[in-house]
Design a protein around this nucleic acid. Structure first.
Length: 555
RNA sequence: GCGCCCGUAGCUCAGCUGGAUAGAGCGUCGGACUUCGAAUCCGUAGGCCGGGGGUUCGAAUCCCUCCGGGCGCGCCA
């Protein structure tokens, strides 16, 4: 509909120019928007205002000329000039009713578009170290990354979701040491367990498994070798657990990428050599430094320490180069907010390798505050007592957890109340939206029992013109905006746009439901309304799917 | 001290590529089920959009500055 208005306006500009009423036939970027107030019509254009400078005329004057060249008719009922020069369009019901057919025909693909033009985009998220289970913060990152990927794909981007496994470096050795020491303790040896080792009980469990597998003799093994065995074993088990937790959370990846593989293939070494040759990497105080300051960083960063060990930055350089070489036109990393200091560093790498900085984007996800019944939940990472993602999913369910994580912009901190997430009423947004889906299913079931359902012929005889109640028109309008909301969500990389949309649609439906009976003695009206609610059901499902939340038939 | 995010109704937050009279949920208070699912709805009240300056026909939105809160600022990850 907005397209039709745009075309109408463009035609008016052209005609007025031909008649010599306007000095220019140019049309700057204009908005066609739904006004806040009903008195301002169904759709409104600011074309007169944005053209004022170009046409060298006051906005209202331009508006008058344009309006005199716009014909009212079947769709456009009335055109008015208001305020500083808005052109307000009042549309007939006929303008909105066809969306029902569109939805029923396109079904699961309604709302999708091709604005992504098949651009290859990679979304990398979670990428937690395999040294412990995922916790709440990872959950928010997982929900955000997964949904952003879904939304981009729906908007026509060629998306790949990737998990980067930090399976190399010091923390893996620490993991090995932690398991080894616990193992010795289990075998009855009195050894100290240092504070900088991983404290969680899961380490003890893994130590038990190693002991079981390797046998008692393992205790006498050379420490260095033993630690290595423990590290490998533990990382494998933990990673497996991470995969399971993510699967239970509805998150899947197209690729799991190992950091260690970058070393094994010599990739890291090669990248360092290349940048050295280009003087982007230089030696100082026995260490190797990347000149990130050339690209706006505050200081240069160490790539290889003076003890010969590479920093994480080294493999991150290789990794991000590798991503682009795999053909991605855009690379999106989802990080916790505490990593924001890292952005400039990676950006420097991207620019140094000849890519545009816009090709690399970071989604910074702010922290999660866990509450129970309004009271802050104390967590001590030091003691290894953190609330895991698994615990959350087990307690409140996957759908409630995901919906809660996506309910707010990731730019803001999030209060996650476990009690609230378990409540089954409108305080808990997930039920509010899912209830729409279940409720409509109930209606359709009843219609089926009354043998009405097979009469919903989606091509003819449904009398969509009977959808003329105020609540029906506003429902139709909201259904119409689904696609543009998906597009906005994709362009801004903000899943909560979809969340807001669904809440909106749900509210409109519940209001409608409480005021109008779908099934009545009026057969024609019943059929029209059945196809309307069926459309709502499909759009709710499509939206929830983007967020990774199921749309239940019954609750 | 520097950097990133945030500051909008009592609470939690939308709205931010500038548009007309400021939005929702919860909480207050008052109503609606012999009816397709009350996990719902309807009504009511609540605001110097943190303060100040600037840009403009027009600012919650953009710029500057100050205040307040969160998170970072290692040859750690």
């Amino acid at each position: 509909m907005k397209q039709i208005i745009r075309r109408t306006v463009a035609n008016a500009v052209e005609k007025a120019f031909e008649k010599g009423l306007l000095p220019s036939d140019q049309m700057p970027d204009m908005d066609v928007e739904e006004p806040r107030h009903k008195a301002h019509g169904d759709l409104s254009s600011n074309v007169a205002m944005v053209s004022a400078a170009l046409q060298k005329m006051p906005p209202r004057k331009i508006a008058e000329i344009l309006v005199s060249h716009i014909e009212t008719g079947d769709l456009i009922r009335k055109v008015e000039i208001a305020g500083p020069g808005f052109i307000n369009f009042f549309l007939s019901n006929k303008a909105w009713q066809p969306v029902v057919d569109e939805i029923l025909e396109q079904d699961t693909s309604f709302g999708s578009s091709d604005i992504g033009k098949n651009e290859k985009v990679q979304v990398e998220f979670v990428s937690s170290n395999p040294t412990g289970p995922l916790h709440v913060g990872h959950g928010r990152g997982a929900a955000v990354g997964d949904s952003v990927g879904n939304i981009l794909a729906f908007a026509g981007f060629d998306v790949q979701k990737e998990y980067y496994i930090n399976d190399s470096g010091r923390q893996i050795r620490t993991l090995g040491t932690s398991v080894w020491l616990r193992l010795l303790q289990k075998a009855g040896k009195a050894v100290d367990f240092p504070e900088d080792c991983y404290q969680g009980d899961y380490i003890k469990d893994i130590a038990g498994l190693v002991l079981e597998k390797e046998g008692e003799a393992f205790v006498h093994k050379d420490e260095k070798e033993a630690v290595e065995v423990c590290a490998k074993f533990a990382a494998k088990i933990i990673l497996q657990g991470i995969r399971e937790d993510l699967t239970d959370f509805g998150v899947g990846f197209d690729q799991w990428f190992s950091e260690q593989s970058l070393y094994d293939s010599g990739r890291v070494q090669k990248v360092i050599e290349d940048f050295k040759a280009r003087a982007m990497i230089y030696e100082e105080d026995g260490a190797l430094w990347f000149k990130t300051t050339d690209f706006g960083d505050e200081k240069n960063r160490v790539v290889v320490r003076n003890n010969g060990l590479a920093t994480y930055f080294a493999s991150d350089i290789a990794y991000h180069m590798e991503k682009f070489e795999r053909g991605f036109q855009r690379v999106i990393d989802v990080w916790g907010a505490d990593h924001h200091g890292y952005i400039k560093r990676i950006n420097a790498v991207v620019e140094a390798s000849g890519r545009k900085s816009e090709q690399f984007q970071v989604i910074l996800v702010q922290l999660v505050n866990l509450l129970r019944g309004g009271q802050p939940f104390q967590m001590s990472t030091r003691a290894g007592e953190f609330v895991t993602l698994k615990e959350i999913v087990d307690e409140v369910g996957k759908d409630a957890a995901r919906f809660m994580f996506l309910s707010r912009s990731y730019d803001s901190g999030l209060d996650f109340d476990l009690e609230l997430a378990k409540q089954k009423n409108s305080e808990n947004p997930v039920y509010y939206v899912q209830y729409v889906h279940a409720r409509i299913t109930g209606i359709l079931l009843k219609a089926k029992q009354e043998n009405l359902i097979q009469e919903i012929d989606f091509k003819k005889g449904r009398h969509l013109n009977l959808l003329d109640a105020e609540e029906e028109i506003s429902l139709l309008k909201i259904l119409y905006t689904f696609r543009e909301n998906v597009e906005k969500s994709a362009l801004e990389l903000h899943p909560h746009v979809i969340f807001n949309y669904l809440m909106n649609l749900a509210a409109a439906f519940h209001g409608y439901y409480n005021r109008h009976k779908v099934i009545s003695d009026d057969r024609d009206q019943t059929l029209a309304r059945l196809s309307l609610v069926l459309s709502v059901k499909k759009v709710i499902r499509n939206g929830l799917t983007l967020l990774g939340v199921t749309a239940p038939e019954r609750m």
